[in-house]
């Protein structure tokens, strides 16, 4: 099974009782907001879930494995996710996530 945005919309729809159209708009907006911040190089910390961090990679030398030719791999910005201890614990049979709507 793979969870998609549609499943998340369904969950919000059940939970909050707004129209499905509204739930879809909000879910889209939440992911777009995350993308906008990360695009600006900002770190996003979601307590109980994890942190999304943008890292600067310096240029480095690499090799084309097929031809053996040396090439320069250009510097770039990459996104990494570090799962929170709470998430890791929950995934391994710890206590379930706190009830939705609890204080942030």
């Amino acid at each position: 099974m793979t969870m998609t945005k549609a499943d998340i919309v369904e969950r919000i729809y059940e939970k909050v009782g707004f129209s499905k159209k509204e739930a879809t708009e909000v879910v889209e907006a939440i992911f777009e907001l995350l993308k906008e911040r990360l695009e600006q190089g900002e770190k996003v910390k979601v307590s109980g879930f994890g942190n999304f961090v943008v890292n600067e990679k310096r240029p480095r030398k690499g090799r084309n494995p097929q031809t053996g030719q040396e090439i320069v791999i250009s510097g770039r910005r990459v996104l990494t996710f570090k799962a929170s201890q709470v998430l890791k614990k929950t995934m391994n049979g710890g206590s379930p996530p706190s009830a939705t709507g609890s204080a942030t």
């Binding site: 969950r11 909000v26 939440i30 879930f49 998430l87 709507g101």
Partner: peptide, 19 residues
């Protein structure tokens, strides 16, 4: 409630071992 529901959904999918 909605923001929490998004991350709770993600957490429970991962807890079920789902992608």
């Amino acid at each position: 409630v909605m923001v929490n529901a998004v991350f709770d959904s993600l957490t429970s999918a991962l807890t079920r071992g789902e992608r």
